[in-house]
Amino acid sequence: MNSIRVISILLSGFLYLLFQILVLKNLVLFGTAFCFLYVTYIILLPLDIKTIPVLLISFFLGIGVDLFYDTLGIHTAALLVIAFIRHRWLLVLVPTGGYEDDLQPSMLNMGLGWFLSYSVPLILIHHVLFFYIESLGTDLFLTSLQKVIASVIFVLVMSIIVQLLFYRRRRGI
């Protein structure tokens, strides 16, 4: 991987972090739907990035979000689980011809159906972990379940909008 690509990946992660803490921190729909768009950044990392670098990126991104949300590591824990599961989940969803090395698993490159089957379980796992760790020790099961479902839908819609606006389709596919 060349240095320009590494800088580009890290810069886009920094932009996701800034957007999350400056714009999306106070964006809550109907008191239940939270927009944790930074999860999309980990989901959309190129396929050729190995698990350890993805875990490191997730750790620093999660810590950055936790610092501004005052959540004591909850974002980091949930994001690290996603980073750990990501590679194995990609192996489950391998298309017939396999993956190209530096392909980004976006909706534009892989199609809407594949992207939904890839991203929805990962976003769901992240949100279940986040909201249930957040409400640990209390009897807020239904409230947490409502937040999980509303937030997954909100993040998925925002993820698709961000991909349509800012990502490009890879040529030759």
Rank of each mutant, 00 (worst) to 15 (best):
N2L: 06
N2P: 05
S3L: 14
I7T: 13
I9A: 04
L10I: 09
L10M: 11
L11C: 13
L11A: 15
S12Q: 10
F14M: 13
L17K: 00
L18Y: 05
Q20R: 01
Q20P: 03
L22M: 14
A33R: 08
A33Y: 09
F34P: 03
F34S: 09
L37K: 05
Y38H: 07
T40G: 11
Y41K: 02
I42F: 01
P46L: 01
L47N: 08
T51I: 15
T51E: 13
I52A: 14
P53R: 11
V54W: 04
G64W: 03
V65Q: 01
V65H: 04
V65K: 03
D66V: 01
F68G: 04
D70E: 13
T71H: 02
A77M: 11
L79E: 01
I82G: 03
F84K: 01
F84V: 00
I85Y: 00
R86D: 04
H87T: 11
H87W: 06
R88H: 12
W89S: 03
L90T: 05
L90E: 06
V92Q: 13
P95S: 06
T96Q: 15
G98E: 02
Y99E: 02
Y99M: 02
Y99A: 01
D102T: 14
D102N: 15
P105A: 01
M107W: 00
F115W: 13
L116G: 04
P121E: 10
P121H: 09
L122N: 04
L122G: 05
I123Y: 07
L124N: 13
L124Y: 14
H127T: 12
H127E: 14
L129E: 11
F130Q: 08
Y132V: 03
E134A: 14
G137M: 04
L145E: 10
V148T: 10
I149K: 08
F154Y: 10
V155H: 05
V157Q: 06
I160L: 12
V162Q: 08
Q163E: 13
L164R: 15
L165H: 03
F166T: 06
R168K: 07
R169G: 06
G172E: 08
G172D: 05
G172C: 08
I173T: 07
I173S: 07
